[in-house]
Amino acid sequence: MSAASSAALAVEGISKSFRLGRESFQALRGIDLALAAGEFVSVVGPSGCGKSTLLRIIAGLETPDAGRVTIGSSTPAETTAAHRLGIAFQDHALLPWLSVAENIALPYRLAGMTVDQARVQELARLVGLGDFLRARPRQLSGGMRQRVSIARAMVLKPVVLLLDEPFGALDLVTRRHLNLEMQRIWGELGTTALLITHSVDEAVQFGNRVFVMAARPGRMHAEFAVKLPRPRDRRVTASPEFVALVQKVAAALDDATAASTASGMPG
């Protein structure tokens, strides 16, 4: 029995090519990934290595050329049709014409379900926006917008949470602060989660495991287990163990980037 069959999220042998004019180029080749229930896995990789494509395939927004994705015992299409997927993007994709509360409640309305106001308020409080329920996204800072988008991703109690560089557009200070907050939130909710990031620090801080991807074609390059205590607050992130692991992952990322360049297109 393979590890994948008992996983909350299993990605097996995913490959994906895109047409580029008359040519076709391989964005992903033979990706395997398995997340146990409640596990938080981070993926880092050079830009353009296919991280977002992998996430979009898991979310059912793209179809792979080969391989399959299983969420619990369902396909991505079945999971989205059951409204059990949570997703947050770098571009928070909030609707400017809705209030914070309405944005968080949007998944209910898109799913045709009655809005659970208590749940909406609970999540708003959890992400620290309990006093901003009626505010418009335009009136919020970048960090607050991302909190709304993460609350929105969590509101339907998804079986898997997919995060595509949700902190990528934020300044460093906001990002640090939000990282800690999100760890606390995730600690409370315990959802199985896949985080894509280009920050090694962030990957190690969040992940039970960290995967490093290489590009052209996008593939798994290295995997690290993170056995540091939680919450990974400043005490942990300043510890020699954390720093050493970050350096190891960063070295692997450098390796992966070099490997990508070497196997890449000329020029």
């Binding site: 979009r56 979310a59 059912g60 927004l61 999971t79 989205t80 049709a81 059951a82 409204h83 997927l85 997703i87 993007f89 994709a93 998944p107 898109l110 799913a111 339907l156 997919l162």
Partner: peptide, 8 residues
């Protein structure tokens, strides 16, 4: 993407 991933 949002409406697709949420199964709208």
């Amino acid at each position: 993407d949002l409406s697709g991933a949420l199964g709208a």
